[in-house]
Simulated assay, not measured.
Amino acid sequence: MSDCGCDKAKAELEEYLHNELCKEDAADVREHMANCVSCTEEHRVGLVLTEAVRRACKETAPEDLRTQVLASLRGMQSQH
Rank of each mutant, 00 (worst) to 15 (best):
L73W: 12
N19H: 12
H43D: 12
A56F: 04
Q77M: 07
L73Y: 07
A11C: 05
L21E: 01
D7I: 03
E24D: 04
M76W: 08
V45I: 15
D64A: 12
C36W: 04
K58P: 04
A71C: 06
K8D: 04
A34D: 10
R30E: 15
A61R: 06
M76D: 03
V48H: 08
V53K: 11
G46A: 10
E63N: 04
T67I: 02
C6N: 07
E42D: 10
L73G: 08
S78H: 12
R54A: 12
V29G: 00
A61W: 06
H43Y: 07
R54V: 04
K8H: 03
E12A: 12
L70D: 08
E41N: 09
E41F: 04
D7L: 09
C36V: 13
V45D: 14
H43E: 05
E51A: 13
R66H: 03
H43L: 02
L65H: 14
A71D: 14
L47S: 07
C57Q: 15
C4E: 00
Y16H: 03
C36G: 07
D7F: 10
Y16P: 00
K8N: 02
H32A: 01
M33F: 02
A34M: 06
M1H: 07
A56W: 07
T67K: 11
G46E: 05
E12N: 14
E59V: 14
C4N: 00
S38A: 13
G75K: 10
H32V: 02
R30N: 07
H18W: 05
D64N: 15
R30G: 02
K23D: 07
G75N: 13
D3P: 02
T67R: 06
M1R: 02
D7R: 09
E59G: 13
